[in-house]
Nucleic acid binder design. Structure first.
Lengths: 367, 367
DNA sequence: AAATTTTTTGTGTGCGAACACAAAAAAAAC
DNA sequence: GTTTTTTTTGTGTTCGCACACAAAAAATTT
């Protein structure tokens, strides 16, 4: 148990005052080059490490982080990153990280933009947030926010949807392409003969389509290279998924057209919307793969109407997002620019274990 | 951003000195009942919360935690909990938690016991560890260690194998029974007709058999209640798995005997030992499910010789184990007595994401 | 060469809790 | 009622860092 090296130890060895060492550590300038070099050398020699507890105490509660997510009342999926962030907040609040939440309307780029402006507005005390966690569902507006933050020197962590921009501190989420490959593998597993599989995208055009395209490509790739060569892949999209009648007509059309239909891969969390519209017997004959452990999907998983759900760890996304900002701001540690979360294969028999933090979502939101 | 309530605030409101409040908080006795009550009341009223950073700083680096695991040179699986613990150590070392590792010979209860005694020996400075993390592979010796620690008031976190004893702070690991059910589900998925499945236990009698029995029961339960009713389940054990010739003979015997063999479920990480001995064509005809993402298994997963691996998150077990002790000792927060980790279904297409921390295992151990 | 400005370096205080020790109050012994 | 002992309460120092401010040294100006 080697005793820690302190600033004052470094100062003594370097023949300077603690104040000078402090200036070197924090780059507060006003240090002559020679002393600067000497201090850096001694720090390395002695292996100086900042005492984080003392640092936090001396600094006071100072960091402000803004979290911008879709309003979860419109889509229960978004409860989960929120819950994860809340969980992390409880831990890091002791160490000087405070969090403010902002919510935008799920399908409205305008609202996203409005909230983003709110976040960046200077407070009465003249400050801006020290970090932002958000999900860039809209490509342009997301990039714009990243750019603004880059100018203001505010680190951003983005979750769920990746942007190519290098102006982010870190991306946390799934590898879209690979999730498509995985879905294909699972569907292929239950498709021995010459059959048809459908990849169906229930979404409106306005949202960031990039990760949906990647899923499709991954899905196609698997069947082209590894899967049962006799399987035909059909690629479809349907926008009016909120109109039950239209959706029903659309789906029945598919069933009639593709008589040798083996399975459907839903590219997002809306598998349950389709299953609602279909006859039980038909559903059970088709293999169905969807995304996300939201309650409506889980119910169908229990009833064996959905065969597999792929979990993209939304709770963990929120949790890790806050943790990453904490690491960067408070501990000043380097963070990974891309943090891919596992693609969990969820069936009835293991679903319970992926909802652990999920329990708190409910209690949290009714409070 | 409400300002924090400090001890001195509580003291003022209660009309006592900070020392008295301190005594109440730490139960250092010597406080008159009236003042004690008053202080507690005020603490609740003002919502006092300990400033953890200040607390850690004032206390100094004080906590010592011992970690007792099997020697990973004998079984690569055990590299993983070690790596997880190391990862956690890096984080909590800043906050006053120091870790010492002890290793015991995998199949030797005597060595486990010897190391346990080492751990509990008082140090030159008269102290014992403040907490212990271990894996109670041997039922009796594990219980004994728990009992001793209970007497000495040392909190214990156990991983991998559960013990019924209530004298543990927390268990972290899988739900054995449910993992059996899950394996059955996956095997059943690929078994349409009247066939035979084998559940095979490659182990020596000496280790704690309890979680193996639970796996078997879960496996059987699924086929009895939900699975294909025409499947016959055969329950076997083989001890001399390290003798390739004998194992080969044994397995070929099985193949000949059960001509309609559909799949084998290996109850631990030794699936690879069996596959080594078998002909490629035969392996590919049989569905194989095993446990644990060790390199030999992963290779066979890549080659499609193993269909599914169930991951019991050994890295996370080590990581969470240390975190749990940190929470208990340093943050003094309540911890969950049982923390079940997910039963991950791993195939070729998602295996990479479950090894994230695993990468560091290699670099760690060659250093 | 003295006075002034600018750059560089050193000193001191506070953050909040833990713990040792001193002081005061209460109880017991005489 | 005084002294001694025990219980209860209060005070002061420490942990290591951040940051404000004071002091010293160097560079400019006069």
């Amino acid at each position: 148990m080697k005793k820690r090296v302190r600033i004052i130890d470094v100062a003594e060895h370097a023949g300077v005052s603690p104040g000078t060492v402090d200036r070197v550590i924090h780059n507060r300038g006003k240090v002559s080059p020679e002393k600067r070099e000497e201090v850096l050398k001694v720090m390395k020699e002695l292996g100086y490490e900042r005492n984080i507890a003392a640092s936090i105490l001396a600094k006071g509660e100072n960091y402000r982080v803004a979290v911008l997510l879709p309003d979860y009342n419109e889509d229960p999926y978004w409860k989960q990153p929120f819950a994860g962030a809340e969980e992390a907040r409880k831990q890091v609040q002791h160490f000087g990280l405070n969090i403010e939440y902002y919510f935008f309307k799920l399908l409205s780029p305008e609202d996203f933009d409005r909230q983003a402006r709110n976040i960046l507005k200077t407070q009465p005390d003249g400050t801006r947030p020290d970090g932002i966690l958000f999900s860039p569902l809209f490509l342009n507006e997301g990039e714009e926010l990243l750019n603004k933050c880059d100018n203001l020197n505010i680190p951003c962590v983005i979750i769920n949807t990746n942007l190519q921009s290098s102006k982010k501190l870190s991306y946390i989420g799934q590898h879209s392409y690979q999730s498509g490959v995985l879905a294909a593998r699972l569907l292929n597993f239950g498709t021995p003969k010459k059959r048809t599989v459908i990849i169906l995208n229930l979404t409106k055009g306005s949202t960031n389509a990039k990760h949906l395209i990647e899923k499709k490509e991954g899905f196609q790739y698997y069947f082209d290279n590894y899967g049962n060569k006799k399987v035909k892949v059909v690629n479809l999209e349907f926008e009016e998924f909120n109109d039950n009648e239209k959706l029903k007509t659309f789906l029945q059309g598919l069933i009639e057209k593709y008589t040798n239909l083996s399975g459907i891969f839903f590219t997002n969390s809306r598998a349950y919307k389709a299953i609602q519209c279909l006859d039980e017997k038909i559903v059970k004959k088709i293999k169905i793969i969807g995304f996300d452990l939201i309650e409506s999907n889980l119910n169908y998983l229990r009833e064996d109407k959905i065969n597999f759900l792929i979990n993209q760890n939304p709770i963990e996304q929120g949790f890790l997002g806050i943790q990453t900002l904490y690491k960067h701001l408070v501990e000043k540690e380097a963070v990974e620019p891309i943090q891919y979360l596992p693609l969990d294969i969820v069936v009835k028999e293991n679903m319970q274990y992926y909802q652990k933090r999920g329990y708190q979502v409910e209690t949290l939101l009714t409070a």
